[in-house]
Amino acid sequence: MSVAFPYTIGVKLQSDPDVIPAMRKFISEALQVSGFSAKFAFRTEIIVDAVCNNAIIYGNESNADSEVEVSCKVHEDRVEVVVKDRGGSVENIERLKEAVNCSKPEGPLADDSEPAGMGLEIVKLLSETIELDVDENNLTSIRVVRKREDTA
């Protein structure tokens, strides 16, 4: 099957973490159908999962009435994932800015005393770039770019 690049998968999700698995798997399958490796698809699935969970839990503070917008633009040599949410509290936005803007972790992320909080750190390790945009209404958008390994 030939695929015309670029194409975009766009979806609006209810702010319920239970809807994430089906969406992340759909993106993963689409990437494999488009000729990306299973490893690339798996790692993109982890990125989509982490950014969406962050948006639902912190950005929309798990308010099921609000939505998260997910866009995955698939190019021949890269994927751009954009996730938009309502931003959440001022504290959350500051936490997010700090998490996105600090440099990529160099040492091990994991230790045996901290069972949570690795999501965005893993995204940084798996991606080329991660950018945060917060508009005047505190609507938040995270854009992650991951390049295909064999063309990187």
Binding site: E45, D49, N53, D111, A116, G117, M118, G119, I122
Partner: peptide, 16 residues
């Protein structure tokens, strides 16, 4: 098939 960051965290928690 799959483990995300939250899952990795609980594996470390089980181990400890």
């Amino acid at each position: 098939r799959y483990v995300n960051s939250t899952g990795l965290g609980v594996l470390l928690h089980f181990n400890k």
